[in-house]
Amino acid sequence: MAEPVVEVVGVYDADGGVVGELTYVVGHLLGRTECSLCDVTHGPVRRKPDWDAMAARLPVVVRLVHRNETTGSERAAHDATGLPVVLGVRADGGHTVLLGPAALRALEGSVAAFETALRAALAVEGGAPGSPRR
């Protein structure tokens, strides 16, 4: 049996840092860049308050990173799937894809739909309801 998921990592299809974020914003405004995970977590100017409230309700910690901030094992996991992606980190350190690019795109930026989809994926993948929150 697979180890339970003890953490969720959302990986944006964008680079972090000032240059990366400005590049994304300009590309997004020009219609050249898209990240459906960004659409779920952020409004036009800042992170959505609904996102923070939803993340606090989840049974596991959610960590958000940009593609240039991922660890080697996270990179290996998202290289196989594409970006953006939501990964589950198992108790043994392994990764599983909880929500891939198509699933995230289908959410159309909805925090409520994200929560429903993530909870369903955690139920299938063995999310640890009793996992300690950090």
Rank of each mutant, 00 (worst) to 15 (best):
residue 99 L to E: 04
residue 99 L to A: 05
residue 99 L to I: 02
residue 99 L to S: 00
residue 99 L to R: 01
residue 100 G to A: 02
residue 101 P to K: 03
residue 101 P to L: 04
residue 101 P to Y: 02
residue 103 A to Q: 14
residue 103 A to V: 00
residue 104 L to V: 03
residue 104 L to A: 09
residue 104 L to Y: 11
residue 104 L to F: 07
residue 105 R to I: 00
residue 105 R to V: 02
residue 105 R to N: 11
residue 106 A to T: 02
residue 106 A to V: 01
residue 106 A to K: 14
residue 108 E to T: 06
residue 108 E to I: 00
residue 108 E to A: 12
residue 108 E to W: 08
residue 108 E to M: 02
residue 108 E to P: 01
residue 109 G to I: 01
residue 109 G to V: 01
residue 109 G to F: 04
residue 109 G to P: 04
residue 109 G to W: 08
residue 109 G to Y: 05
residue 110 S to F: 02
residue 110 S to Q: 05
residue 110 S to A: 03
residue 111 V to W: 12
residue 111 V to T: 12
residue 111 V to M: 03
residue 112 A to W: 03
residue 113 A to Y: 00
residue 113 A to V: 05
residue 113 A to N: 05
residue 113 A to M: 02
residue 113 A to S: 11
residue 114 F to W: 07
residue 114 F to V: 01
residue 115 E to R: 13
residue 115 E to K: 14
residue 115 E to G: 10
residue 116 T to H: 13
residue 116 T to D: 13
residue 116 T to C: 01
residue 117 A to K: 09
residue 117 A to H: 14
residue 117 A to C: 05
residue 117 A to F: 05
residue 118 L to E: 04
residue 118 L to S: 03
residue 118 L to G: 02
residue 118 L to D: 00
residue 119 R to S: 09
residue 119 R to H: 10
residue 119 R to A: 07
residue 120 A to F: 13
residue 120 A to R: 14
residue 120 A to T: 15
residue 121 A to G: 08
residue 121 A to C: 10
residue 122 L to G: 10
residue 122 L to A: 09
residue 122 L to S: 09
residue 123 A to E: 14
residue 123 A to N: 10
residue 124 V to W: 05
residue 124 V to Y: 04
residue 125 E to A: 15
residue 125 E to K: 08
residue 126 G to Y: 09
residue 126 G to R: 10
residue 126 G to L: 02
residue 126 G to A: 07
residue 126 G to K: 06
residue 127 G to H: 07
residue 127 G to R: 04
residue 127 G to S: 11
residue 128 A to W: 12
residue 128 A to V: 13
residue 128 A to G: 08
residue 128 A to I: 04
residue 129 P to L: 03
residue 129 P to E: 09
residue 129 P to V: 15
residue 129 P to F: 01
residue 130 G to R: 15
residue 130 G to N: 15
residue 130 G to Q: 14
